[in-house]
Design a protein around this nucleic acid. Sequence first.
DNA 1: GGCTGGATTTGGAACGATCCAATATCTATG
DNA 2: CATAGATATTGGATCGTTCCAAATCCAGCC
Lengths: 330, 330
Amino acid sequence: MDVAARAGVSKSTVSLVLQGSKQVRAETRTAVEKAMAEIGYVYNRAAANLRSSSVGLVGLVINDLRNPFFTEFATSLQMAIAAEGYATVIANSDEDPELQAKLVGSMIEHGVSAMVISPAYGAASDTFDQLARRGLPTLQVLRQGDERTDLFPFASFDYATGSAKATRHLLQQGARNVAFVGGLPGRAITRERKSGWRDVLKKDGLEEVALHGKSSRAFGMEMAATLIADHPEIDAAVCFNDLVALGLMAGFARAGRPVGTGFRVVGFDDIEEAAQSWPQLSSVSCDIAQFAQDTAARLLGWMVEGERPEPELRMPVRLVTRASSTGETT
Amino acid sequence: MDVAARAGVSKSTVSLVLQGSKQVRAETRTAVEKAMAEIGYVYNRAAANLRSSSVGLVGLVINDLRNPFFTEFATSLQMAIAAEGYATVIANSDEDPELQAKLVGSMIEHGVSAMVISPAYGAASDTFDQLARRGLPTLQVLRQGDERTDLFPFASFDYATGSAKATRHLLQQGARNVAFVGGLPGRAITRERKSGWRDVLKKDGLEEVALHGKSSRAFGMEMAATLIADHPEIDAAVCFNDLVALGLMAGFARAGRPVGTGFRVVGFDDIEEAAQSWPQLSSVSCDIAQFAQDTAARLLGWMVEGERPEPELRMPVRLVTRASSTGETT
DNA sequence: GGCTGGATTTGGAACGATCCAATATCTATG
DNA sequence: CATAGATATTGGATCGTTCCAAATCCAGCC
């Protein structure tokens, strides 16, 4: 700490300057700052943390960072949090519960003061137990894990209403048989996204065809072939997410049956690409940027003010209709 | 540090156990581990760093994390680095040099022991100077910044050869006039990706039409309209990246002129989606996962062994031909 | 000039690990 | 059984901040 010597003050004073305390005289502050600049001083956070234990770090663990929906969430959250002076550590668990537990452990060691997690499926008790033990403010977002989900507040979108809207819309457009495509069976989120669709079909006494599987573009493409071959009566689909929907559309295009009027599709998430595909993809829009901001606010409220958020929150969603379901060319 | 007391040893011994030293007796180690488990002890990295100054943290700053190409790189790099026991802090500079400098500063404070950066365009001296001052091993990847680019080793792909291959391929397929679409003018990476295209056209004495702009799907879509209206003679395009190419294809599809034989397209990066679009997109494939692994290896070599990598490295690229340029339906 | 009270500044303990030299404990060997 | 040499363990200093109580400064006032 030559800074102190160089500026002719004590290290305590330097510390005060560092913390931006207004109780140091302006001249003193200037002198210290000058000394710091001259010396090329860099603040050592490790030391500061050691003493004050608060690192200004927030951990974010995402199950699939390659999925644009999550990427968008991660980047938006990071920016919202950065605006409050916190840094974010982003990590990708790649849907692997063990890796997830390790990542969370590493983040705890690094002294994160809060966690946001979109959990991987599978055994998650390791992950959540260590967070609970440390008493870290932790938010589950976008999907609920398979275990210990009750330990921490959860926030997501009102998917059930969304898929109901989508299904009704497809029927109104003239579809007769609406399938559900994508989503791993047994997952809470699949149940939710399916439930609205099922409710509507039940009410109208229609047959339910659901094709479950990985929520990827590739799976959607595959299912296009399956639908054409095995379910010719199906003339519309609500997809688990936009990736599946885009894959499905590509599959139909490849088979020479472009989507729009003959076959109608609605996706989920309204990722950026939905508005730029051909045909443009109708989708249940989840305002993920807004959601990220809310999440940041709730998290900071918990971290700073100690206000634990309500245990469950559902953001409303909005159906955006485009050519893939209306057939209208814009 | 009740662990020491509880296990009946000194704190030094506990420290040795923590570091996995093999010079503690097996029984002692077990005793200590038992004590740690009972007490629910968590390692405090801040304290360790303070003394030993090496955090096991690598910083990664990306100019556009929403771009799937970069997302893929970030996640692959993170995993490669995690395999060596380092944690990665990922941040998105969102193409903003000031934010970038702030992020880098924050990472330095957090004690990262190395940086990987795909720089935002614009004034980058703040960013690089602070890294140089600290003497942090830093790798520039995928694109070169506008300033101080000489300070640190740079690694990327051999784009020039890639675009030459793409252009020759299009001409062989029967195209007569090949445009270049996308890429901000004046950027090093645009120059590179363009140069191969230009060289081939020059050799054949063909006219050069280049449409520059943001490298997004939306821009590609826009340019489809422009090409159709203003450059009817153009019958093929090499695109700056896959996003532009996908947008271009969507734009042509919207105009009722699906891409394949009438108009041929090759993209750049070969992102996952390229193989799943309709028509499937030909692309200059950059093996980004491999690149990420190499980057991790070079970085660790520098961090651990002190071997500074060669100042410039170009990974070879490969042209993957698909329906968007051959017209063949698979 | 002495006093008062607010504004500044300061010394030194603390944070929880690592590191190093020194000490204690084993093990094999003559 | 003594002892060298290897193997295990330990005490205490140390890293660079923050925190707190105490000390110092200074202007204004009687």
